[in-house]
């Protein structure tokens, strides 16, 4: 990363730090303060969108570790989100656990489910592994549907809102202060994982698995670790989302959602910490935009029918992915880096 002129790294610690100038700190603190102040002026539906974004960011960070860094494509990510959501709900409903214990357990159980479905990664890779993880999507949902005594089957399952010191976190306003910090913490953790030994081992496996093995990186262990970590964050996301909605249904965790997660990651940029954040914001805003404009369009052109909104979002999803794969294959995060570098070096070209 080029530094603005006049700034030199004197120690390795300085060179490895994420925030290197006082300006970085100012921006970060300003941004976090802005995040904290949003509920003061945002409407309820805007908060709803932001909470959805926060939950998706957590899940896509997990997918980024698995697919972006380690290169193991997962087509069943929303199933692992479902494992987290249902685990959390079952622990709270049936065993009376508090949300704060159920949430890590949800992460763990989703991580363990990830280990089960990550097993084939020892033998198959790339496209074939993607199909194997597609199996996870169907098997997990099948299990959920056929355990109605625990999960409610195809009917919805009620989830209690979390409470903190006797105070129920159930409004959008208060839940924002649970979901957003979780997303920020996840971002911090994933960034650190990606820049230390584990993250480098993941990228090594992604870029050249034979050479990685020759460097003493145990392929199977590290792939399983990627599955565990990726699905762990999926589970956390599922838990946070379930307790926000206070009711979950199998319909929220379909194959389509898995594909949305992948699309968010591709749009944001694979293997970059900022990728999931940009991708999720872009896709959620886009989806909301379509959902809001589609009824207006179908009212203006009645021939299109009232199903137009749902159909339109799929069409746009497809077009957006195509557009990004062709014109911006490294995602919005990469573009962001380019802009930042230009700005930092201005007025010099390098």
């Amino acid at each position: 990363m080029p530094l603005p002129s006049g700034i030199y790294n004197v120690t390795y610690k300085e060179d490895m730090a994420i925030l290197r100038t006082w300006c970085h700190w100012v921006w970060l603190i300003a941004f976090l303060a802005f995040l904290a102040l949003i509920p003061a002026f945002a409407t309820r539906s805007q908060l709803n969108t932001l909470i959805t974004i926060a939950c998706s960011v957590i899940a896509v960070h997990g997918l980024n570790l698995l697919t972006g860094y380690c290169g193991q494509i997962s087509m069943g990510h929303s199933a692992f989100v479902a494992v987290g959501a249902y685990t959390s709900a079952i622990f709270c409903n049936n065993l009376g656990f508090s949300f704060w214990i159920a949430m890590p357990l949800a992460g763990l159980s989703a991580g363990l489910a990830g280990l089960v479905f990550g097993g084939p990664s020892l033998r198959v890779k790339g496209f074939y592994l993607a199909i194997t993880t597609l199996g996870a999507q169907f098997i997990i949902l099948f299990v959920i549907i056929h355990l109605p005594s625990l999960t409610g089957g195809v009917r919805s399952l009620d989830v209690p809102p979390p409470s903190l010191f006797g105070y129920l976190i159930e409004t959008d306003y208060s839940y924002y202060y649970l979901a957003m910090p979780m997303a920020v913490i996840t971002t911090y953790l994933v960034k650190n994982i990606s820049r230390t030994g584990v993250g480098r081992a993941f990228v090594a496996i992604r870029d050249n698995d034979l050479a990685a093995e020759g460097m003493g990186i145990a392929l199977f262990y590290n792939k399983m670790l990627a599955f565990f970590l990726g699905c762990f964050f999926a589970g956390i996301s599922g838990s946070v989302y379930a307790h926000y909605l206070q009711t979950i249904n199998i319909e929220y965790f379909t194959l389509m959602d898995s594909i949305w997660y992948l699309a968010m990651l591709i749009v944001g940029g694979l293997g970059q910490t900022m990728g999931p954040i940009f991708g999720v914001i872009f896709m959620v805003v886009l989806r909301n935009l379509i959902m809001e404009t589609a009824p207006l369009i179908s009212r203006a052109v009645p021939v299109l029918g009232i199903e137009f909104g749902a159909a339109m979002s799929l069409v746009v999803l497809g077009l957006v992915i195509m557009f990004f794969l062709v014109f911006e294959p490294r995602g919005l995060a990469h573009r962001w880096e380019i802009i930042k570098t230009k700005f930092r070096l201005y007025p010099f070209p390098y």
């Binding site: 994982i193 030994g197 480098r200 081992a201 990228v203 460097m215």
Partner: peptide, 21 residues
């Protein structure tokens, strides 16, 4: 990063301590 990735054997990375940094 390529060269430090090859320190894997000596580094013995741990995802938990790594995440906290």
């Amino acid at each position: 990063e390529n060269i430090i990735a090859a320190r894997h054997i000596q580094l013995k990375p741990n995802p938990l301590t790594g995440a906290l940094y």
